[in-house]
């Protein structure tokens, strides 16, 4: 386990380096620099700006300098939000996106697993049909359409929640439900399939035969194995929730990572875009590693390495 984690960390550093390198050169290959604006500055002035942000050196020197600085944990000053460093911006944006993501993921798992188990147990009943219909719709409808509907229903027709903004718990609920809903739907389907598969196995029948209550059979014996596909889905689901929040953060005016990332890319804020890309990479890598560890915890047959 320890050696596995060390190995993973080394691979992660390598991945981050590759991502850094590719992003660095791609960003600078796109035409239009960070200082282009509708009111143009004179060439002398632009030269001074470039010097301030170390853009005047040859590309390979910039690359090395940036790489070393990034490696030391300093992502540099933001080009477009000039009053802040990238570390400060991500430091403010990340907790916001994390709150949103955690709530969405917990909501998706709780609702998804509960619905999936219920449909599997009451197979072919109206509960099953109703839930799976809802799940199919949930998977098919993109979250921004869901968000528009939710705003119409719960902001205007039935004013339960504010239309957008950030700062109180009530700002968090609508967006995290909209963000989590498609994943809840998918998890419900995965759980149902997994449960149906497991419930037919011999060892479940054995467990029943030795007199365990249906509740114990499901939670102790059936669910852990039935959840394997769900656990492996958590990696991609995290990725989906992270990227999905780009759109929802816009719709609900949430000051998270997604808003920073989009604006950084379109405004050529090299340092902020780089910081966001690296943070996303790190997150996905960590989540995937956690999923692998979770596999090992749930299924004793799995070997880490």
């Amino acid at each position: 386990m320890i050696s596995f984690l060390i190995k993973r960390s080394l691979w992660m550093l390598f991945t981050l380096w590759i991502v850094f390198t590719v992003s660095f050169f791609l960003m600078r290959a796109v035409p239009g620099g960070p200082f282009a604006g509708e009111r143009k500055v004179s060439p002398e002035v632009e030269r001074n700006l470039r010097a301030r942000y170390d853009l005047d050196a040859p590309l390979h020197q910039q690359y090395l300098k940036n790489l070393l600085r990034t490696a030391s944990g300093d992502l540099g000053p933001s080009f477009k939000l000039a009053d802040f460093t990238v570390n400060e911006i991500l430091g403010q944006g990340f907790p916001v996106s994390a709150s949103l993501g955690i709530l969405a993921l917990v909501f998706a798992c709780t609702l998804g697993v509960a619905a999936g188990v219920a449909s599997a147990i009451y197979r072919n009943s109206w509960i099953d049909v109703g839930m799976m219909l809802a799940a199919t719709i949930g998977v098919a409808v993109p979250n921004f359409v869901l968000a528009s509907l939710a705003v119409l229903l719960f902001v205007f027709i039935w004013p339960l929640f504010p239309a957008g903004g950030w700062g109180e718990l009530q700002h968090l609920i609508l967006p995290s439900i909209c963000l989590g809903a498609p994943f809840a739907a998918y998890i419900a389907r995965l759980t149902r399939t997994g449960m149906l598969d497991v419930l037919g196995h011999d060892y479940v029948r054995t467990a029943r035969a030795k007199g365990l209550s249906p509740y114990q059979v499901i939670t102790r014996h059936a669910l852990p194995i039935a959840l394997m596909p769900v656990v492996s889905y958590l990696g991609p689901a995290t990725a989906g929730i992270l990227t999905g929040s780009l759109v929802l953060e816009r719709i609900f005016a949430i000051p998270g990572m997604g808003s920073h990332f989009i604006d950084a890319a379109t405004q050529r804020d090299y340092t902020l875009a780089m910081g966001a890309v690296l943070l996303y990479t790190l997150l996905l890598y960590v989540m995937n590693t956690l999923v692998d560890v979770a596999y090992w915890v749930i299924d004793p047959r799995v070997k880490l390495g």
């Binding site: 902001v155 205007f156 504010p162 239309a163 957008g164 903004g165 816009r250 609900f252 005016a253």
Partner: peptide, 11 residues
């Protein structure tokens, strides 16, 4: 700071 015009109107 709100960029989406629709959100501005909703708010």
């Amino acid at each position: 700071a709100v960029t989406s015009e629709t959100t501005v109107l909703n708010m």
